[in-house]
């Protein structure tokens, strides 16, 4: 289980990286943390001719915050984003989900943007980007573009990042004043990919009544599935029933489709309850 041979470059700037990617086109792959790419190479599920290592692009190692957005650069490791107190306060869903991403040793190297570009339907951060309606800034040698979450995920392990392109950063809207979030999942062992997981975003109106409730699902669809369950109001069991009806998971060695659907319902209720409690608390603190 060793990777097949490939060429390698380690650009020192984003411009250099984009030129190298342009020169190699579809024969090249970006190497970020390598925590998903290295297993794929070692198992020879992929054999790119060239790797462009972005680990020296320190200009992309940042977590930035303004009034409306948390912006995570392509070299920010999961561990760094998880430890960022300002980001956690501005958008609690980031840390709520990141602590469920793999093990600490993998979070020390893997990048948050890399996990989004990887577009694994079991990846927590894909669901977070979709639920919050975030976007990804993508660059090629000739152009930059911002791709909204609902256009970013094209299929399982397939994102809108084309050959020759580099994802520069992911943007997550900050949490509104009367809102709450939660992320819950069931996995075989702590740190494993989830059998099913649910993120929730609940918003209250000025009188404290629920005005909007949305949920996002892991491991039940090829691309992140987001449901609007606002019609169930604060009847979270009813919202769970809606989710149970609408998800259409597949079976694999870890779980049957029925068990996954069951989990989607149960976890919907748990996530909504926790997100609602968060929204109530945040409203109380103005």
């Amino acid at each position: 289980m060793k990777p097949s041979p490939f060429g390698y470059s380690r650009p020192a700037s984003v411009d250099e990286a984009l030129s190298t990617l342009a020169a190699h086109g579809s024969n090249a792959k970006v190497l970020a943390g390598g925590q998903s790419l290295l297993p794929i190479l070692s198992m020879r599920l992929a054999a790119p001719h060239h790797l462009v290592d972005i680990n020296r692009l320190t200009e992309l190692d940042y977590v930035r915050l303004d009034a409306s957005t948390v912006r995570v650069g392509a070299l920010a490791r999961h561990a760094r984003v998880l430890a960022d107190t300002a980001a956690r306060v501005a958008q609690p869903l980031l840390a709520q989900a990141l602590r469920l991403v793999a093990h600490a040793t993998i979070r020390n190297r893997g990048t948050t943007v890399g996990s989004i570009v990887h577009a694994d339907p079991s990846g927590e951060m894909t669901a977070v980007l979709a639920l919050l309606g975030g976007s990804v800034r993508v660059a090629s040698k000739s152009a930059h573009r911002d791709v909204p979450a609902d256009e970013f995920f094209l299929g399982a392990l397939e994102s809108a990042v084309a050959p020759g392109e580099l994802a520069l950063e992911a943007s997550f809207p900050v949490l509104g004043p009367r809102s709450g979030t939660a992320f819950v999942e069931v996995s075989r062992r702590q740190g494993d990919y989830a059998v099913c997981g649910v993120g929730a975003l609940v918003e209250l109106d000025g009188d404290g009544a629920l005005s909007s409730a949305r949920t996002a699902y892991l491991s039940v669809s090829a691309t992140p599935l987001v449901l609007d369950v606002s019609e169930a109001g604060e009847d979270f069991a009813a919202a769970a029933a809606l989710a149970h009806e609408q998800v259409d998971p597949e079976a694999d060695i870890h779980a049957t489709a029925d068990y996954r659907r069951h989990l989607a319902g149960v976890l919907t209720e748990r996530a909504l309850r926790a997100a609602h409690a968060g929204a109530v608390e945040r409203s109380a603190h103005g």
Partner: peptide, 11 residues
């Protein structure tokens, strides 16, 4: 702490 099987020496 990192997994050495998930790192390239050159990287």
């Amino acid at each position: 702490a990192m997994r050495s099987c998930l790192l390239l020496a050159v990287s």
